[in-house]
């Protein structure tokens, strides 16, 4: 006679003394249920400090700014804040200074996209040809300006550009190009700011691009070269597409931060002038608020830029999601 061999689970149920996977389950769920109440709030406790700081220093000022943008107030604590509706928004949009600052900001961003995205790709790809410790040295050399404070940077570049004995005008003179005070020249002031800020931002770009390149497995280039690709094809068809998530990140950082990075240089070197030729939106905000003491106008302009940059950031985040390959 045949008797069927029973499966392990059935065997366990047959003998109540044995507590196996089947019998043990209720006990474990009970343990989990017991632990859950204490577990619910602990994770929130961990993020609480960050949330408090964000609320205190970012979101609360944002709400205050939004509130101020509907009020007329001259920053004197004893003076009352008068509600004026969207009047400040209407005014700020009609100001020619804002249009000038906006155009300048776009021009700055385009220039910095070239300097801190395109140039770093070139530099990083070229510095890969340098082997060993020399490469680290070159990259450090390019990165160091990023660590110099804007005030020191401004001082050094003011000397370099000084019309009486500055290095750059002196070199230009020997080449037969007369150079006046560039910071007072409406056609050159903005370019000089771009050169100074670009010099600082280049290092950041090279750092990000080098990190991106280091993250790309050398197997891809090796595979492509065995597949018959030449160096140019490998760069354009393999390396650059794989680098694109880093480039999108860098472009986003450039767009969002260039206005901030430019601000101290503008303030220290040109003061936004001559006229408004080298100003940008951040400098304009500062002027509205702390030179003209019009908190409402400054806040309204600030809110408009917040929304504008927010939309740009959303587009880029979406783009970088699309471009991420999950390289394994």
């Amino acid at each position: 006679m045949f008797t069927e061999v029973s499966g392990p689970a059935a065997a366990l149920q047959a003998s109540p003394a044995v507590v196996g996977p089947a019998g043990g389950r209720p006990a474990r769920t009970a343990a989990l249920r017991r632990r859950r109440p204490s577990g619910t709030w602990v994770p929130y406790l961990y993020v609480l400090p960050a949330v408090i700081l964000l609320l205190l220093w970012t979101y609360w000022p944002l709400v205050q700014t939004a509130g101020l943008s509907f009020q007329d107030w001259n920053l004197i604590p004893t003076r009352p804040k008068v509600f004026v509706g969207v009047q400040k928004y209407q005014k700020v949009l009609s100001l020619p200074e804002l249009h000038q600052a906006l155009t300048n900001t776009v021009a700055y961003i385009l220039a910095f996209l070239g300097i801190s995205v395109a140039l770093p790709v070139l530099f990083a790809l070229l510095s890969r040809k340098v082997k060993g410790k020399a490469r680290t040295f070159y990259q450090a050399l390019i990165f160091v300006p990023f660590l110099v404070t804007p005030v020191a940077t401004s001082a050094v570049w003011r000397w370099l550009f000084a019309p009486d004995g500055g290095t750059i005008p002196a070199i230009a003179a020997t080449l037969g190009v007369p150079m006046d005070n560039v910071f007072r020249d409406p056609n050159a002031a903005m370019t000089s700011v771009i050169v100074i800020v670009g010099w600082q931002m280049l290092g950041f770009g090279v750092l990000v691009v080098s990190a991106g390149l280091a993250g790309i497995s050398p197997d891809y280039a090796a595979a492509a070269s065995i597949d018959g690709a030449n160096q140019r094809q490998i760069t354009w068809r393999i390396i650059l597409p794989l680098l694109s998530p880093s480039l999108v990140f860098l472009a986003l950082m450039t767009i969002l931060l260039s206005a901030q990075w430019t601000y101290p240089i503008i303030d220290l070197v040109t003061g936004g002038g001559p006229g408004n030729s080298s100003t940008n939106i951040y400098y304009l905000l500062y002027q509205f608020g702390f030179r003209n003491f019009d908190a409402g106008l400054s806040s309204a302009a600030g809110m408009l830029f917040f929304v504008g940059f927010g939309i740009v950031a959303l587009v880029f985040v979406e783009l970088s999601e699309k471009l991420s390959f999950h390289d394994n």
Binding site: I226, D227, S244, F325
Partner: peptide
């Protein structure tokens, strides 16, 4: 000869499939 002129094909341990 550089590898692209050798007329060989290789399967890598990591496969090295172009992820994009």
């Amino acid at each position: 000869q550089p590898s692209r002129r050798r007329d060989l094909a290789m399967v890598f341990q990591s496969y090295a499939l172009y992820p994009h």
